[in-house]
Nucleic acid binder design. Structure first.
Length: 645
RNA sequence: GCCGAUGUAGCUCAACCGGUAGAGCAACUGAUUUGUAAUCAGUCGGUUGGAGGUUCGAGUCCUCUCAUCGGCUCCA
């Protein structure tokens, strides 16, 4: 604190002395673009007085923190606007999120889409009023009274849960006051342009036993142009949506007649899947795995033993009866691999045993969660189970971890999020053992030097896991790879091996999937490449386009030659103009279009047009084929042929 | 499952206050023989997601149901 006359602060690296009580805004000589201040690393309002010795920095929209302050203030603006238009609405919470903000309301009758423009217009009015945003600190009792007087029951509930002694901050702008930690922009006029995007339901406090509130999503930027650019970006992103591309490129469908969440892989989607699977098998062979096959259903008793019936029931379809015995369609592959393990005696010398299977499982997913290929009811996991001795488990986990990342890298994924998921509330086994298992996973992650978050309670019922999430085009992260430590199932099934002292001992298990499920992985892959698969994955690598019907026989001979070299190739023999054929080929995102006219037919050449509209000119067919062969061999992420092959 | 919205030709979308469903693209047929993102003409195509109801009459209004979309919850 200042000693009477003045305080010394450090602003942008240089030290200054100012009168005590000087605000951050004054110290920074803040212009309109400064939204808040960072004092000694902590975000505060511009109106906050700076203490002695403080390091003061300006926070603008250019920083993530600045955007958060800005959007959070915009959410208050929205709440104020809603309260003006719908005085009986109760507010709850309204944080900034990536690219925007939301606010949850309890409001009767519910808002409709038509209300959004009205709310937006009122927000614009409040911006015009340029109301000062003021922080006040209250005791808990005062805060409870304040919000109780306004019948803001949700706010009262939040305040009552805050510690009694602690001062509680509220922010007031005009007639609107909201419980908030802050900081906020100094006045409502600082918000430039706002846009409300959508309405959605959201449970109070995220708990489905609570009342469902109405959530309004919006975004805000300093200028209208930036809002428009953001909306345009959303439109662009939609074009990468795997559901749209799946239809446009004829990759898959999920017809209502088949059933929700049940995927039909069309020939072109199936080709890509097959390439993924072939690569997967080859890598597993090299990585010391054996492939196994198991059935799609098993007796219900098996799922009793495994614990699925106790801990996984809500994700399983109902059992069916066969000759008086109940059978269950499989939600997981592990019990089958366990039964293979049990089929004979195992020595410590046999371990680790690594068994992999592209195992198709069926899980009951609630109707509201289904989403294209990303969330389905029948899917094929690239599953494997490793049975090992306790002393091997950490090494095996590390090995799987690097295997996963290598596999993802081949498909062009170098960015992902890793989470350690710990014991869920419903789980088998002792907490102490869980703790040990979590430690082993943590050690493997640390050894690999990988940053990770912790998902408390996100583990499988039989053990903790490491999850690897990949982001889709909308920035939604999807869990793909997973590595799960399991000391429980071996015990439940009474698995053992004979150790080097001749005693029976339980093995440990590692459940793992590298890609997760082929459906989800393919969905993410489609979006990742926007449907423009690299040549090694593309369902059609080459399309031959004769300029006129006269070159049809030559085109067919080119197609045949390519086919014999095992390229995925087709010809467009329609009597269309070459421009139309090029356009159609481009829209199918085919890596290479070969234009063959009179000239090419004459000298055994092809005119190569690479994806993206790059005309590589004419080259001998052989040169094209060796170039493409190389590109495929390298699993190159981009088309890489150049002029003259 | 929950909240909200939406289902019209294969796709993208029209159809006033309830008055008897239409366009472009695709497909098909024919003409055209084309040199790097759409050649022309014609033809076909619909129990308006499904089932009930209101009405003289329903794509339009009501109820139920299925699916999809955006979220929430849950998950590979």
């Amino acid at each position: 604190m200042g000693r009477g006359s003045g305080v010394t602060v450090i602003v942008e690296g240089s030290s200054r002395t100012v009168p005590a009580g000087t605000t951050a805004a004054e110290v920074l000589n803040a212009g309109k673009d400064v939204l808040a201040a960072r004092v000694d690393g902590r975000l505060v309002d511009l109106s906050a007085p700076v203490p002695e010795g403080a390091v003061v920095e300006a926070v603008t929209f250019l920083s993530p923190e600045g955007r958060e302050v800005y959007r959070h203030s915009a959410s208050h603006l929205m709440a104020q606007s809603v309260k003006r238009l719908f005085p009986r609405a109760k507010v709850s919470i309204g944080p900034a999120i990536e690219d925007g903000y939301y606010y949850d309301f309890d409001i009767e009758p519910p808002l409709t889409e038509e209300d959004l423009p009205r709310i937006e217009a009122e927000m614009a009015r409040i911006i015009g009023e340029d109301l000062p945003v003021r922080r006040e600190e209250l005791s808990r009792d005062e805060a409870v009274r304040l919000f109780a007087d306004q019948s803001e029951t949700y706010k009262v509930e939040i305040v009552q849960e805050l510690p009694a002694g602690q001062a509680i901050s509220v922010y007031r702008q005009g007639e609107f006051v909201d419980l908030c930690r802050g900081p906020h922009v100094p006045s409502t006029g600082r918000i430039g342009a706002v846009k409300l995007l959508s309405l959605a339901g959201a449970y109070w406090r995220g708990d489905e036993r609570n009342k469902m509130l109405q959530r309004v999503y919006g975004t805000s930027f300093p200028t209208r142009e930036e809002v428009d650019a953001y909306l345009a970006r959303l439109e662009e992103i939609k074009k990468r949506d795997h559901r749209r591309l799946g239809r446009d490129l004829d990759l898959f469908s999920i017809p209502e007649e088949t059933g929700a969440g049940l995927v039909l892989w069309h020939p072109k989607g199936a080709r890509v899947r097959q390439i993924i699977e072939d690569h997967w098998r080859e890598e597993h062979r090299k990585g010391g795995y054996e492939v196994v096959y198991t059935p799609h259903m098993a007796r219900l008793d098996l799922w009793k033993t495994s614990g699925h019936l106790d801990f996984y029931k809500e994700n399983m379809f109902s059992p069916m009866e066969v000759e008086g015995t109940a059978y269950e369609i499989k939600p997981m592959n592990c019990p089958f691999h366990i039964m293979i393990y049990k089929s004979r005696m195992r020595s410590y010398r046999d371990l680790p045993i690594r068994w992999a299977e592209l195992g198709t499982v069926y899980r009951y997913e609630r109707s509201g969660v289904l989403h294209g290929l990303m969330r389905v009811r029948g899917f094929t996991q690239d599953d494997a189970h490793i049975f090992c001795r306790p002393d091997q488990v950490e090494g095996e986990i590390r090995r799987v971890l690097s295997f996963t990342l290598d596999m993802l890298a081949v498909f062009g994924f170098r960015e992902y999020e890793i989470f350690l998921s710990t014991r869920p509330s419903e789980a088998v086994g002792e907490p102490g053992e869980w703790h040990k298992a979590e430690g082993a996973l943590r050690a493997a992650l640390d050894a690999a030097g990988l940053p990770y978050g912790v998902d408390e309670g996100g583990g499988a019922f039989y053990g903790p896991k490491i999850d690897i999430k990949i982001k889709d085009s909308l920035g939604r992260a999807w869990q793909c790879g997973t590595i799960q430590f399991d000391f429980n199932l071996p015990r439940r099934f009474d698995l053992f091996f004979t150790n080097d002292r001749g005693e029976r001992e339980h093995p440990y298990m590692v459940h793992r999937a590298l890609l997760g499920s082929l459906e989800r992985f393919f969905g993410v892959l489609v979006e990742h490449y926007g449907g423009a698969f690299p040549a090694w994955l593309a369902p059609v690598q080459v399309r031959v386009l004769p300029v006129t019907d006269a070159q049809a026989p030559y085109a067919e001979s080119v197609e045949k030659a390519l086919n014999e070299r095992e390229f995925r190739v087709e010809s467009d023999l329609r009597s269309e103009k070459i421009g139309a054929k090029v356009r159609d080929g481009a829209m199918q995102k085919i890596p290479y279009l070969l234009v063959v006219g009179k000239r090419e037919a004459g000298d055994g050449a092809v005119s190569v047009r690479a994806r993206g509209g790059v005309d590589l000119g004419a080259m001998p067919l052989d040169a094209f084929m060796s170039g493409l062969e190389e590109e495929v061999r390298l699993r190159a992420n981009e088309t890489r042929l150049t002029a003259r092959g």
